[in-house]
């Protein structure tokens, strides 16, 4: 059987989550590999959630929010951008694969962009194979 990556998506309520809704409303099809957790803002994403998701068995993490300048809470997405950059550095330091974490800006009107992002990510992760970060004890 072909490997099906498991993606956890952290989407901000005002942009990316609405964009994902629009993809559905427009009947744009994308692979069912993503599971979504709604955040009010990407600025509310604690990197711990990402690490936990990897330990639990996620193969990839998509963090998506409003385009720069468009955050509903003024600057949450800038905070997220900084935080994700640091998270990736830490993963690299630990010898883990930082390219399994994707940060994307997707507006409420970009249903197609959301679907394309998921498609692209699924293909990328299929090529990469399962994440080695899954904790065997859990």
């Amino acid at each position: 059987m072909e490997f099906e990556p498991r993606i956890v998506g952290f989407l901000c309520n005002w942009c990316a989550y609405s964009g994902a809704d629009l993809a559905g409303t427009s009947r744009i099809q994308y692979p069912p590999n993503i599971r979504v957790i709604r955040l009010m803002c990407t600025g509310a994403l604690d990197p711990i959630y990402v690490l936990r998701a990897f330990l639990e068995g996620a193969d990839g993490i998509l963090i998506a929010g409003c385009h720069p300048g468009d955050c509903h809470y003024l600057n949450g997405n800038y905070k997220a951008r900084r935080r994700v950059a640091i998270l990736k550095e830490i993963l690299k330091e630990l010898g883990l694969e930082e390219d399994r974490v994707w940060l994307r800006w997707i507006s409420a009107s970009e249903g197609q962009r959301f679907a394309d992002t998921v498609k692209e990510m699924v293909e990328y992760l299929k090529a990469k194979g399962p994440s080695p970060m899954k904790n065997p004890i859990l």
Partner: peptide
């Protein structure tokens, strides 16, 4: 918005009904 909750080193700041406990439970589930 939750910005304060993420920066708090002691997890003392939380947003009602959007707590780390809830997010971690959700993450575990999916």
């Amino acid at each position: 918005c939750g910005a304060c909750a993420v920066v708090c080193p002691n997890k003392a700041s939380r947003v009602r009904n959007f707590t780390p406990l809830q997010y971690l439970a959700m993450v575990e589930e999916i």
